[in-house]
Design a protein around this nucleic acid. Structure first.
Length: 634
DNA sequence: TTAGGGTTAG
């Protein structure tokens, strides 16, 4: 009774005083721990139960299994599974469903599938569980296939099916599909009945990049919970709208009946990491300490990521030393943190340490490791990681892993090997793979392979202007101007909508975003004035503008103006006039930093005696005394 | 006095 009203500690006292405990009382006590989210205590009581020789039944198993996933305790899950088989409990549908869910959450999709295959009868929960398992594993096509099978077996989808399918739709990236799902949920009246359905739709629209629709969905919901708020905050943050995310976060605090929770911090922090807003991020760190959440694995990991992405690797390491690190999650964050700063050797060292501590790496660990090796030029080590990932850990490479490998080989100049590698891939190469090859061809000025890669890219994703820019840069680099013209007119003929480039900088508690050619900033005049002064000084020191980065077909002086008003330069100039001399400047750019701006920033760092840290969509560039940490990648 | 599936990190 106590447990039902949430007084778990009282329930435990009664439990402790019981002269005789039967299976029912153990089960009741364990399940009350599970339901109040006290996973570790549930598991420890479960161990007591086993030590006392009490045999568990279907109820025990299905209430204790769900706590294995949050604790990332695969061995406990397996142990229970063995017990289940030995004692013939696997015929119970609750037990099998719980096993599917546990395996799926720990990332053992094959085990989940095996349990599902072995079931004699399945109910709606079994089908929902397996669909959701593949959705969580990032295999939307399999999830959709199983959904089809579910329909063939005459099961009608319910709201929970819908929630999984919404995530599947987000992974597939089709807005049309998303609209269709919204319509069907409305027709069935689900949006009014269940807050989860509305939340799933907010998430879906936000992931499809349609934050306007996400906001509309949020506005129309009669009842919102903390998750509705968190999901929308995440949406703004993931779409690069950090200021909107923080505004929402503040209005949430003013909203009665809604209290920021762990999920809120996890939602807002990546927004700050994204734009490099250290001061704002630190404030969240403070709040997390006040509400006792700073050592939570999720919050801790986001904080590690935030410090790393804001250029504070030392603070990231300090925090890493404090958070629980039984799961791969914080390890992945710290490995990737060192990787993006070009410290590949440290990433490898941390990986070795992770293995020593017996933490099982997952597919994300290897994405972080491979890209760390690639940025640091550690080709052999990267290749070994790729082999070990498959042989030792049985992880099947995804397109992300393949793209890292192409990048690794390509950056190091092994372009033919990279191309052979693509040809030998067992899956169809997507845009990210050819994009990695094209990027490498840009670095090494390989026109032949570059055209080959861009032909593929124009077929897969002809709308992405970034590839045209890269290809034209390749032609420009080797002085083939007729090629540059050809690509330009191709892009023009296809009427390409250009992805607007923007850069952001966090100064005085605000994140300022600059679009290329921006004229509307309150300090616009001062910014251009500063850029004019800098340009003159740079030219005296030998800077020559590189017009090959200007795609527009205009006169020379106009080209100079275009380069000077690139978003990264506006942000840097704003940083210079808004902070005391010699303060380091942190910039974030949504696309790759332009090659000419890269060169100009070297000069600016020398003239102003400032460290300038630019994180772009690809990597960190650390400018100091006229040099950049990334070497001569441009 | 007892059991299951959904949102948010890397």
């Amino acid at each position: 009774m106590y447990a039902r009203f949430g007084f778990v500690s009282d329930a435990r006292r009664v439990f402790n005083e019981m002269p005789v405990r039967d299976l029912g009382s153990w089960n009741a006590m364990i399940s009350s721990y599970c339901q109040s989210g006290r996973a570790a205590e549930a598991l420890s009581l479960f161990e007591d139960m086993r030590r006392n020789g009490v045999r568990m039944d279907c109820v025990t198993v299905s209430s204790v299994l769900p706590v294995c996933a949050p604790l990332n305790d695969l061995s406990m899950g397996k142990l229970i599974h063995v017990y289940v088989i030995k004692n013939g409990l696997d015929f119970d549908i609750f037990v099998s469903n719980a096993l599917i869910n546990t395996y799926a959450k720990i990332g053992c999709i094959e085990d989940a599938q095996r349990v599902f295959d072995g079931m004699e009868t399945r109910d709606l929960v079994s089908w929902n569980s397996i669909v959701s398992a593949y959705e969580q594993a990032g295999e939307p096509s399999t999830a959709l296939y199983l959904f089809g099978e579910m329909r063939k077996n005459s099961f009608q989808p319910d709201k929970l099916t819908f929630v999984s399918l919404a995530s599947v739709a987000a992974q597939c990236g089709s807005f049309q599909n998303g609209r269709g799902m919204h319509g069907s949920a409305t027709r069935r009246g689900w949006i009014l009945e269940d807050i989860f359905v509305g939340n799933a739709l907010i998430d879906l629209y936000a992931k499809l990049g349609r934050i306007d629709y996400a906001q509309k969905m949020f506005d129309t919901m009669a009842v919102k919970d903390v998750i509705s708020w968190n999901t929308l905050i995440t949406g703004y943050a993931q779409n690069g709208l950090a200021n909107e995310a923080i505004e929402l976060y503040h209005s949430m605090d003013k909203c009665e009946g809604i209290t920021a929770d762990q999920g809120t911090l996890v939602s807002i922090l990546p927004g700050f990491s994204h734009v490099g807003a250290l001061v704002q991020g630190k404030r969240i760190h403070g709040r997390s300490i006040r509400i006792g959440l700073h050592l939570d694995v999720f919050v801790g990991t986001c904080l590690i990521d935030m410090y790393a992405k804001c250029g504070r690797l030392d603070d990231a390491m300090l925090l890493f030393g404090e958070v629980p690190r039984r799961s791969s999650v914080p390890w992945n964050a710290i490995i990737s943190g060192h990787g993006i700063h070009g410290h590949g050797a440290k990433s490898l060292f941390l990986f070795a340490e992770m293995q020593e501590e017996g933490v099982k790496p997952d597919h994300v660990t290897f994405v972080s490791l491979l890209s760390a090796c690639s940025h640091a030029g550690l080709v052999d080590q990267g290749q070994r990681c790729f082999q070990r990932m498959q042989r030792e850990y049985g992880i099947v490479p995804t397109t992300k892993h393949y793209a890292c490998m192409v990048d690794l080989l390509g950056r190091a100049g092994q372009l033919d090997t990279a191309y052979d590698f693509i040809k030998s891939m067992p899956i169809r190469p997507d845009a990210s793979i050819w994009g990695a090859l094209l990027g490498a061809c840009r670095i090494h000025g390989n026109v032949e392979l570059g055209t080959l890669a861009s032909d593929q890219l124009f077929e897969i994703d002809s709308e992405n202007v970034g590839y045209y820019v890269l290809l034209s840069n390749i032609y420009a680099k080797v002085g083939r101007w007729e090629g540059v013209d050809k690509v330009r007119s191709l892009a023009r003929d296809r009427g390409l909508r250009k992805t607007p480039g923007w850069s952001s900088i966090a100064v005085n508690n605000r994140v300022d975003v600059f679009f290329t050619g921006n004229q509307s900033h309150p300090r616009c005049k001062d910014i251009y004035k500063e850029l004019g002064i800098l340009l003159a000084q740079m030219k005296n020191l030998g800077y020559v503008p590189d017009y090959s980065f200007v795609l527009q077909d205009v006169e020379e002086d106009e080209k100079e103006h275009i380069l000077t008003s690139h978003s990264e330069r506006l942000a840097i100039a704003f940083g210079i006039i808004s902070t005391p001399p010699k303060t380091p400047i942190h910039i974030f750019k949504n696309l790759r930093v332009c090659g000419d701006c890269h060169n100009a920033t070297k000069f600016i760092s020398m003239i102003t005696e400032r460290e300038i840290i630019v994180r772009d969509s690809n990597r960190f560039h650390h400018f100091k005394d006229g040099n950049c940490s990334c070497g001569d990648y441009w």
